[in-house]
Amino acid sequence: MRKCVKCQNKAVVYLPQHRLSLCKEHYMEWYARRVEATIREFRMFSKKDRVLVAVSGGKDSLALWHVLHRLGYRADGLYINLGIDEYSERSKLLCDKFAKDRDLVLHVVELKREVASIPEIKQVEKRPACSFCGQLKRYYMNKYARLLGYHVIATGHNLDDESATLLSNVLSWNMEYLSRQFPVLEEREGFVRKVKPLCKFTEKENALYAFLAGIEYVEEECPFAEGASSIEHKMILNQVEEKSPGTKLRFYMDFLRRMHPLLSSEEVSLVPCRVCGEPTTAEVCSVCRLRERLSPKPLSSSASS
């Protein structure tokens, strides 16, 4: 039986990559300290900042909101209802419950009201759902964070997400994406600062935290994510991790420390979208172009926000 390295009681969690055995109490403490240290390491935000946590109802984002609240940050939630039938209904319910139980502020954006639901968009879009869904979420996250006066958007991206994305970008040598892969994306014309405080935590570490904190979250996979290549990349990395603990963390952190500073990121110039006014590199942003495909009416030239 493994014992907690802090108190010698029975350990419930063993983290091979950190060679650490911990009981429930000390795991919760370790997790919160490591989140705080990550926020400081990358100078993500301070306790004066108003932080908007993008919550999906899943383990990562709710664990993030929970721990930020515990650490005393001014963190509110933003839920984007994607309109994916029962899956979205349950996600929304759990985010609502999480906020109400803790007396926290949750903002809700209804995608169906803004543009159309994901299943409706899928009928006119050839791209994988995860691709346009991610784009829409980034658009509305940024728009509402700015409109509601938040300084920072925090997302629940974890080490598995980041290392799988890194692997994918390295396999295709996508230098543009590699240069942009960093846990902090600075604020710039029309874009609110974006941060990933859980980038050094595995999915399992976040799920363990959520379980031990008594957070009810959606365990089921999004029906549109089935067969996503990111899952394949995560499984490959987990196979390596089983044989060589610490590989994912080393792969990601050494990229940030050694490789990222060598990559030059060309600053693309941004202009306000002719239709909605959101920042874009083209005359009309991708969301407005999508909206046009869904309802082919001439686009208005006045900004709606």
Binding site: M1, V12, D160, K204, N238, E242
Partner: peptide, 17 residues
């Protein structure tokens, strides 16, 4: 994979052992 999954019995988190 032990890297992504764990077992719970009632309210108790089980270790791999």
């Amino acid at each position: 994979s032990r890297e992504s999954a764990f077992v719970v019995r009632g309210e108790e988190l089980l270790t791999e052992e």
